[in-house]
């Protein structure tokens, strides 16, 4: 474990917590893409499938973190699609999730380190996570704005994988550990946030709201 990965995981936890708090406190999921949250839930379930296969005692933080990610993302989907369904902005959350799931699944079968079920599920989860934020970014571009709290969520969510890139550089240098699939997907994922990062740093930090040119 290195500092970059630690802060990456903390940033990821913060993102999940910020979104849950936003929906719970405002009792509304306006401006939140339910599809992105569904895709994240699929990512966690397919990536941490080992939790379901052998229920080893919860002796280490990794297992606890995995359980937190899975339960928090499923609970977020429950809030969006059931509890606060009336506030779900289905019209603007219109990016076709199948256009992300099918290519990720296809690519996972073609490019993977080992052709076995667990590895392919993990690879699928990595590829899907790289593009899972697209429906959320698409929704913001359609509505032309993002609530400040949603911007903080996106910043934390984008920072998590950016910090993981630093973690991979660290591990390459000190542990000569390389996982090309995770690195390439992580770089693609972080690049998708660049536009948002620019808006966040130039606007939200100064207390302005993000409003995209309609």
């Amino acid at each position: 474990m290195n500092i970059f990965r630690l802060f990456g995981d903390l940033s990821h936890l913060a993102a999940i917590a910020i979104l849950l708090l936003k929906i719970w406190k405002t009792r509304s999921c306006a401006g939140v893409s339910g599809k992105t949250q569904l895709l994240f839930a699929v990512c966690f379930i397919t990536r941490y499938i080992d939790l379901f296969l052998h229920f080893v005692s919860l002796y280490n933080t990794e297992k606890v973190m995995k359980l937190i990610y899975i339960s928090a993302s499923v609970f977020t989907c429950y809030l969006i699609f059931f509890k606060f369904k009336a506030t779900y902005d289905g019209n603007h959350d219109s990016m076709r999730a199948e256009f992300l799931i099918v290519p990720a699944a296809g690519l996972a079968c073609l490019i993977n380190t080992k052709f076995d079920a667990i590895e392919i599920l993990w690879t699928f989860s990595i590829y899907l996570e790289a593009v899972a934020i697209l429906p959320q970014l698409f929704l913001i571009s359609k509505t032309g704005e993002a609530e400040t709290i949603t911007s903080h969520y996106l910043f934390a969510q984008g920072s998590y994988r950016a910090l993981y890139i630093l973690n991979w550089i660290y591990r390459y240098h000190y542990e000569s550990h390389v996982d090309t699939i995770a690195i390439v997907a992580g770089v693609v994922q972080t690049i998708l946030y660049c536009d948002f990062f620019y808006l966040y740093i130039t606007k939200v930090v100064k207390g302005q709201k993000i409003v995209l040119p309609a």
Partner: peptide, 10 residues
């Protein structure tokens, strides 16, 4: 064994 498949990162 399947457990050694498990990645060491989240």
């Amino acid at each position: 064994d399947i457990m050694d498949e498990i990645k060491d990162e989240l």
